[in-house]
Design a protein around this nucleic acid. Structure first.
Length: 354
DNA sequence: AATGCGGGGGT
DNA sequence: ACCCCAGCATT
C-alpha cells in the first residue's frame, strides 16, 4: 500500500476512540455472547434503535443457555419492531450450537465462528476483535466509507469483490495491541464524523492523514453503483370481530417476508373485484359468516420495506364463526393478540383498536 | 453475482 | 423521493 501515514492514522484513531467513544451498553462488557447479540442486532440497524432492544433482550436471555431453547414466539416478540426477523432465528440457532457443541463457550477463531448461523465475515471479525482482542477485520458500511476516503479508494463498493480490498487494508492498518478499539473507532468515526453526506472534516482526528481530504472532495466517496428498484402491492386488511369482542388473526408462513409473524387476514387488492367476491373468499378461507359491508376503511397508510411498498386499507367487519383455533389461525382477545409477535403495519391497527 | 429480507431516520 | 444503516443467507 502506498499510504504514507499508516502509523499516525492508527494511533490517532485509537486515541480518539478512547477519548470520544459513546457510552453504549455493549461497551460495558467483554462477554462474547453479549457482543454477539449486539452485533446481530446492529446489522443494518442504527445504534439508537438497538439500545432498548439490547437491554430488554439480555435481561430476558442473559446467557447462551437461556436463549438456546426459548420458544420461538417469545423470541420473535422480543425482536418485534426491530426487523429482519431471520436474524433472531439464526442467532438462536447459532447460540444453540454453541451450547451443544462448545459447552456454551463462544468460539474464539474465525473458522468456527463463521460456521454459526447468522455470523458472516463482519460479525465474526467484530466478535473476535472486541471480545477476544484478536486483530481481525470487521468491514461494514461505515468502514468502507471511512477507508475509501482515507485511502482514496475509488472501487465500486456495490461490487462484492471490493470488500476484499477493505479487509486487506484493515489487516494492514489495524492496531495489534487494541484491535477492538481500532475497529470500533472506524465505525464510530463513520457514524459521527465521516458521515455519508457533509462529513465533519474539521472535527476529524485523522483528517491530516486522509487522502480524500487532501484531494478536496471526501463527500464524493465512496463510489456506489447499485440502485434500488421497489414495487408496490395494495392490500385490503380485514379486522374481523366476533360477538365476544375477539379478533381473527393468523400466522404467516415460516419462510419469506415476516416469516412466522402474526397478522390480521389480508388479501391483495385486485382490480374490479366486488365486495361480494371478497366476502366469499374470506368466508371460505376462514370459515366465518360476515355481516355488514366494506364501506369505509378505518385506517389507510403505506408501509415501506427496503424492497417493496405495501399500501394498506384496513376494514372493520363483524362476523359469526364456528370451530376452534388452529395452530395458525383463530379468534383472540386484544390482550392475547398483544402477546403475539406482529409486524409494525399490523401493530399500527392493533393499537388503534385499544 | 444478484436478490430477499424491516424499519427508521436523515437530507 | 432517495439514501443509508455495526450484513447475512440463499440461489
Amino acid at each position: 500500500m502506498k499510504y504514507p501515514y499508516k502509523n499516525e492514522f492508527t494511533s490517532n484513531l485509537v486515541e480518539w476512540y478512547h477519548g470520544e467513544k459513546r457510552d453504549l451498553p455493549w461497551r460495558r462488557t467483554n462477554d462474547p455472547y453479549k457482543i454477539w447479540v449486539s452485533e446481530v442486532m446492529l446489522q443494518q440497524t442504527r445504534v439508537d434503535t438497538v439500545i432498548p432492544y439490547y437491554n430488554r433482550f439480555l435481561e430476558k436471555y442473559p446467557t447462551p443457555q437461556s436463549l438456546a431453547y426459548a420458544p420461538q414466539e417469545e423470541l420473535l416478540k422480543m425482536w418485534e419492531g426491530l426487523g429482519y426477523y431471520s436474524r433472531a432465528r439464526n442467532l438462536q440457532s447459532g447460540v444453540r450450537e454453541v451450547v451443544e457443541k462448545y459447552d456454551g463457550q463462544v468460539p474464539n477463531n474465525r473458522h468456527d465462528l463463521s460456521k454459526l448461523k447468522g455470523i458472516g465475515p463482519y460479525t465474526a471479525g467484530a466478535i473476535l476483535s472486541i471480545a477476544f482482542n484478536e486483530p481481525e477485520h470487521a468491514v461494514d458500511g461505515n468502514v468502507m466509507r471511512v477507508l475509501s476516503r482515507v485511502l482514496h479508494i475509488k472501487e465500486d463498493i456495490a461490487v462484492t469483490k471490493t470488500k476484499k480490498i477493505f479487509e486487506e487494508a484493515v489487516m494492514d492498518l489495524i492496531d495489534q495491541d487494541d484491535p477492538g478499539a481500532f475497529n470500533q473507532g472506524l465505525m464510530d468515526l463513520g457514524a459521527q464524523i465521516c458521515t455519508p453526506t457533509s462529513p465533519k472534516c474539521l472535527l476529524c482526528p485523522v483528517r491530516e492523514y486522509c487522502m480524500a481530504f487532501q484531494e478536496g472532495h471526501p463527500e464524493e466517496l465512496p463510489i456506489k453503483s447499485k440502485k434500488t428498484k421497489s414495487k408496490t402491492i395494495q392490500y385490503n386488511v380485514f379486522v374481523i370481530k366476533d360477538g365476544n369482542g375477539h379478533y381473527l388473526v393468523e400466522k404467516r408462513p415460516d419462510e419469506g417476508l415476516l416469516a412466522s409473524m402474526w397478522q390480521f387476514p389480508m388479501l391483495e387488492k385486485l382490480k374490479n373485484q366486488s365486495s361480494e367476491k371478497i366476502y366469499e373468499a374470506l368466508e371460505n378461507n376462514y370459515n366465518v359468516k360476515l355481516k355488514g359491508n366494506l364501506d369505509n376503511p378505518i385506517l389507510e397508510f403505506k408501509h415501506i420495506f427496503s424492497h417493496l411498498t405495501w399500501e394498506m386499507a384496513y376494514y372493520l367487519v363483524e362476523a359469526e364463526h364456528e370451530g376452534d383455533r388452529s395452530e395458525i389461525c383463530g379468534f383472540y382477545s386484544l390482550e392475547e393478540i398483544g402477546q403475539l409477535p406482529m409486524s409494525v403495519p399490523m401493530l399500527k391497527v392493533l393499537n388503534s383498536l385499544k
